[in-house]
Amino acid sequence: MSDAAILSAPARRRGASGEAITAWALGLPAVLAYLVLLLLPTLAAILLAFTDYELGAPAFAWIGLGNFTELLGDRGFAQALRNTIFYVAVVTPGSILGALAIALLIEAGTRGRTLFRAVFFLPVVSLTVAMASAWQYLLHPSIGPLNAVLRQVGIAGPAWLSSSDTVMWSLAAIGIWENLGFNLVLFLAGLTAIPRELYAAAEVDGAPSAWERFRLVTWPMLGPTTLFVLTITMIRSVRVFDTVKVLTQGGPNKASEVLLHAMYLEGFTYFRLGYSAAITLVFLAIVLALMWLQTRVLDKRVHYG
């Protein structure tokens, strides 16, 4: 035993640098992927945002903050930003509160947990583009089942996706439906992790109603889950694109234009890559701000260390 220890001591010293090389070698694929797929494109986008580069153009010029000053005056962009904020403001509370309510109902029930979980999770695993076609049919003003039902009760349903009054609400409703299942599964996991004894203690301590037990135990214990769900839902809804692309293309008359769709239009329809990159940076700033909010501000209030 001790002989072996003496013999291996110099070997270990020699191994120190070898160990570092091995570590770098093992980390290399991930480092490369990070550089090539994330860091370099981000840097490229940042650089592009300060140019007037157009796809296929032989040259480009540095125009400084030109793209950003143009953004400030661009009414289409302002509309896209407003619509995105509206979408986030409706989808985030809608899909979080809805998911929490359904998760509580499923958790309280005795049967069918797996079934309900699967049913609500289905939109998450299905292809949004394909599902969007189903929504197009459901919301169709003349042949859609929704308006058919409304007609039965004597209401003339609006043209959900082609009227500027209802289009954002319709998209938001689809967004809630899309995000609900994901949030639901997270909440169900969070609920299972709450110790049963805390509920027993709340009952013995005299919590008079289910609502009081929710306030005393469930809500605080779900804090970390809720924070995660909140951040993820906000980022997911800032990123809204495919339903808009498939269902409305930002119309009618830019009434459903959103950030990423505006970026897509500028970059890949009008080939103004520099301007498109500027929109991307605005998007990036919003997402980073949301993440900062999570880690710096809210995180301290939900972990009771």
Binding site: A201, E203, V217
Partner: peptide, 30 residues
Amino acid sequence: LRPAARDVAMVFQSYALYPHLTVAENIAVP
């Protein structure tokens, strides 16, 4: 009767303290 109406107090094996409340708030709950 429900536990609240029984006039009993219980100490749990895991203590079952409310982690988001301070010591004073925990003791004050009942």
